[in-house]
Nucleic acid binder design. Structure first.
Lengths: 233, 233
DNA sequence: CCTACTTTGTGCGTACTTTCACAAGGGCGT
DNA sequence: ACGCCCTTGTGAAAGTACGCACAAAGTAGG
């Protein structure tokens, strides 16, 4: 099993696993800061809110980085997960739309510290263009192509109103962006080579409403103990 | 039209389906506004960015609301999906944390129009308490219990810094909130009867980075046509 | 060196999801 | 009234994901 070749580098990590790696990473970074050297799958799983078998299976996709009887070396695992997620290199991000949401994103600390550099903020509203937000001057949306080209932006973030989203997306894609994070409540149309992920507040609330309604209809749901949120994604 | 048996009311709608219903609903509401009366699964699927077979199977969980040879009645389907999601009743929401993100959420239009009423905004920072945001006066976090109790808040939104999130969550839960939408980058601990959904910007970016890295490693990915974003959730 | 104990990595059964492909149902023109 | 054509609803297959339970592998102590 895994004859320790130069690189286990399995190119087929399940999507569900990829979505959990950032959670493990954050937990591990917290451990590292607190000076913990090693951690067992059981403990890490508990912090991350998942089943320990699932955690071990997830990590096994990256290679055999644990030590039986001991656990995982925290720093080493941080490095391996970071590398797998592509966080050992820097990614350049541009944000379109500087409303409250755009500002919240621009000021979000977790950006820079994790390999994401904000190259530019764009807006169409001339009352906002020229303002300084999070240390950057807001540029007019019509400079998008120039900036994306010269700064080699890989990820475009869309925080515009819904009506503008597809147009901005098209311009991002045309300019060479290959990943888009969409906060606007619309389904974006992109070529197959472009990845899109969406974050949609209204959808999340509606899903919660669905379950809330169930609880009301049914009645006393099973109440047992205090568990880690399974945070269904 | 469609006399239908009393209630197919299958209480077992798959989670994956529930997550897509809001997307269909939004697409249908757009159609309704534009005056479209009926729509085929093929067309609706295309707008929603999913496979038409998947759409039909999703809708089949709600009952048989289509007409063969014709398609679905837009208004009727809007109603059925709304009812299933619990949007025919109003849900009361409270938001904790009135930073840029909290403001963005409070000002987000899609709230009120879809059955979600914001009952209160809370913050711990005295410089913010008393401000008016989106027509509401920001209250001190210590009034959370009073308000949640008297306003019958069902959904708590956490838009605080990470360090405060678990504390606020505990107070929400203790006060009787049974659904939580968490924007803070932490894994929340809640009793089993409480639903938690998380929205985590940093995780989304890391997932995009992973795929971005793949594209770079590999090389020319298959480029074929122009498709609907599959927006992996 | 050998035994007892701990924790990983994974084989396997189960459950959920997606997709295909097609029979059944319903409208519409003649 | 009949038959053609369209679109739904669904059985079955294929692909994913999950979690149990345990053998393998490593530590620690005598």
């Amino acid at each position: 099993m895994t004859p320790r070749s130069p690189r286990p580098r399995d190119r087929g990590i399940p999507e569900a696993t990829v979505a959990r790696l950032p959670v493990y990473l954050r937990a591990l970074q917290g451990m590292a800061e607190r000076g913990t050297l090693t951690i067992s799958s059981e403990d890490l799983a508990s912090i991350a809110g998942v089943n320990s078998a699932k955690l071990r299976k997830d990590l096994s996709h990256l290679g055999s980085y644990g030590t039986r009887g001991v656990g995982y070396d925290v720093d080493y695992l941080v490095y391996q997960i970071s590398r797998e997620l592509g966080l050992t290199q820097d990614w350049t991000v541009a944000i379109a739309g500087v409303g409250n949401l755009g500002r919240a994103l621009a000021n979000y600390g977790g950006f820079g510290t994790r390999g994401f550099r904000i190259a530019a903020l764009f807006d169409a509203d001339l009352r906002v263009v020229g303002d300084e937000v999070a240390g950057l001057v807001v540029r007019h949306i019509d400079t998008l192509e120039d900036v994306v080209g010269s700064e080699d932006v890989a990820i475009g973030v869309i925080a515009t109103p819904a009506v503008s989203a597809q147009g901005v997306c098209d311009r991002f894609v045309e300019a060479g962006v290959t990943s888009v994070l969409n906060f606007a409540p619309v389904v974006l149309n992109v070529p197959p080579a472009v990845d899109v992920r969406k974050v949609d507040l209204s959808i999340e609330l509606q899903i919660l409403a669905f379950h809330e309604q169930r609880k009301a209809d049914g009645q006393a749901p099973p109440e047992a103990g205090w568990i880690d949120a399974t945070e269904k994604t």
